[in-house]
């Protein structure tokens, strides 16, 4: 029997900010309070509020907040997308719960660099190769978990080796492992 058997969508409506997308809330079949600090440790870019408690993070373009008895999601493409992400989340929660013995729970808010700080450790070429208009925009997306360091091509140019090492020391703090050979 898994820790969490089901998550059911309880309410769905068009997004306030984006009429092409939907927001919803869903109800887990059991209380999630005890697993939140473990999820906080596992989801690298999450923000944890222990007084709520609640855990907020981005899954690509979707904003997800987990409360003990409720999960909210906004900017979801459609119900198919919602169910698919909720299935992924259920598996993540069950996997995290199963592995909790080997995970150090994080009860506090982790230190996170600001977008400007990350920007400072990027090559700042504004090359647009990552798909973002500027390096600052890339830094913001990185913080939100919508981009990965590997998408910054110039960062991996030989001339940026020392910058790259410093960059990965910093981003390791919010969970991105440095690629081999960095």
């Amino acid at each position: 029997m898994p820790f969490l058997e089901d998550i059911d969508i309880a309410f769905i409506e068009p997004c306030v900010t984006d009429p092409g997308r939907v927001r919803l809330y869903a109800e887990p079949s059991r209380d999630l309070a005890e697993v939140l600090p473990y999820l906080n440790a596992v989801i690298n870019h999450a923000t944890y509020n222990k007084d709520g408690p609640s855990l907020t993070f981005m899954k690509e373009f979707r904003l997800i907040t987990i409360y003990p008895r409720r999960i909210t999601m906004s900017k979801v493409q459609n119900t198919t997308d919602a169910w698919q992400v909720l299935d992924w989340l259920k598996d993540l929660i069950n996997d995290t719960y199963d592995r909790r013995g080997s995970i150090t729970p994080v009860h506090g808010v982790r230190w996170r660099p600001t977008a400007l700080q990350i920007y400072g450790w990027l090559p700042r070429t504004n090359c647009k190769a990552c798909g973002e208009p500027t390096c600052l925009a890339f830094a913001v997306k990185l913080l939100l978990g919508e981009r990965t360091p590997q998408e910054c091509e110039p960062l991996f140019f030989p001339e940026h080796a020392s910058l790259r090492r410093a960059f990965f020391e910093i981003v390791a703090a919010f969970g991105y492992p440095a690629p081999p050979g960095t």
């Binding site: 068009p14 009429p19 092409g20 939907v22 459609n78 119900t79």
Partner: peptide
């Protein structure tokens, strides 16, 4: 369904 504001197919 939910994306009625769009004038074309999503």
């Amino acid at each position: 369904g939910g994306d009625s504001m769009l004038e074309h197919q999503p």
